[in-house]
């Protein structure tokens, strides 16, 4: 380090850089290489096995004229927006309630976080039974005497996606709540004292002081929830398997079904490329705002 010239930045910390080469290579080959391979073969007419036989944009044309794909996109949009907003609001509200120094906080925290310990497959099956009209919620309420009560999302094509949403939120809200709670615990006690001295109301304190201070926590929660939304697959398979009909299909299931069941790799790759493109379209402007803005600070 005491040589005459200042060493080139590239060669500083040589051993650390050499040590990280395998990781960088893995990332490049697995993530970028795999992605590029998928995009490349989405322009071919590959069936069961990948074949280099170009068909232009045929796979994409077929994809966007497929009813099942359109329904999948629509379902993912409904599920995504609802689960993003509701999980955030519910997670924060629950965390705020727990943060009010209530009795049995540990117990409540465990109960609410517990569903997160279950896999999506178990969650899906459990909710399939809970929402079954013959022995689930509907049957229980009817047994209480409300004979005309009807709640059967699993067999109604129009609202089946909300049945999946309920299950997804039941499973995921606990985690968001715990993240939010950690964020709330990180807020300095002096802030609370200051707002009390200034006589600011409780709700106003949360909305105008605490929430802006918790911005990094919200970003973390947002990333976790969004990645869960895009890859939504196993919950649907376990709970409805896309039914009734094709009314609860999701894009990830389209990809799997066309790659392996229909033995049409090209079509599956085209669908997964579209999933990636949609993620990129949402992610890039957001990442630019979130991280690109820091330079100006």
């Amino acid at each position: 380090m005491d040589s005459a010239k200042r060493p080139n930045g590239l060669f500083r910390n040589k051993s650390a850089k050499i040590a990280s080469i395998p990781m960088i290579l893995t990332a490049l080959v697995v993530f970028f290489g795999g992605t590029a391979w998928t995009v490349f073969y989405s322009f071919t007419g590959s069936r069961l096995l990948p074949k280099v036989k170009f068909v232009g944009f045929d796979q994409y044309e077929r994809l966007w004229s497929s009813h099942r794909w359109m329904i999948s996109i629509e379902n993912l949009a409904i599920y995504g927006i609802c689960s993003l907003v509701l999980t955030m609001v519910l997670g924060f509200t629950l965390a705020a309630l727990l943060d009010r120094k209530i009795r049995f906080e540990n117990t409540f925290r465990t109960i609410i976080l517990y569903p997160f310990a279950l896999s999506f497959v178990v969650t899906g099956l459990a909710w399939q039974w809970i929402l079954n009209p013959d022995f689930g919620v509907q049957a229980v309420v009817r047994a209480w005497g409300w004979e005309s009560f009807s709640f059967d999302p699993m067999n109604n094509p129009d609202i089946v996606i909300y049945g999946i949403l309920i299950a997804g939120m039941w499973q995921g809200t606990g985690l968001v709540m715990v993240i939010m709670l950690a964020g709330l615990r990180g807020i300095d006690e002096d802030i609370w004292k200051a707002t009390r001295v200034d006589g600011i109301g409780l709700v106003k304190t949360y909305v105008q002081v605490i929430v802006p201070m918790m911005r990094p926590v919200f970003v973390t929660a947002l990333v976790i929830i969004s990645s869960g939304i895009i890859k939504l697959y196993d919950l649907v398979v376990a709970q409805t398997n896309g039914g009734p009909g094709i009314s609860s299909e999701v894009p990830a299931k389209y990809v799997i079904d066309y790659m392996f069941k229909a033995q049409n790799l090209g079509q599956g790759f085209a669908a997964s490329t579209m999933m990636m493109v949609s993620v990129v379209i949402i992610l890039v402007p957001w990442a630019y705002l979130e991280f690109g803005g820091k330079k100006r600070d």
Partner: peptide, 28 residues
């Protein structure tokens, strides 16, 4: 082929579970 069968099955799944008209299903 498995591809065609899957597409027909998707159509049938939708047709039987919804109120899709016979004419529309035939066109597809």
């Amino acid at each position: 082929s498995a591809d065609t069968t899957t597409q027909i099955e998707d159509l049938m799944a939708e047709f039987w579970a919804s109120d899709l008209s016979a004419t529309e299903a035939q066109a597809r």
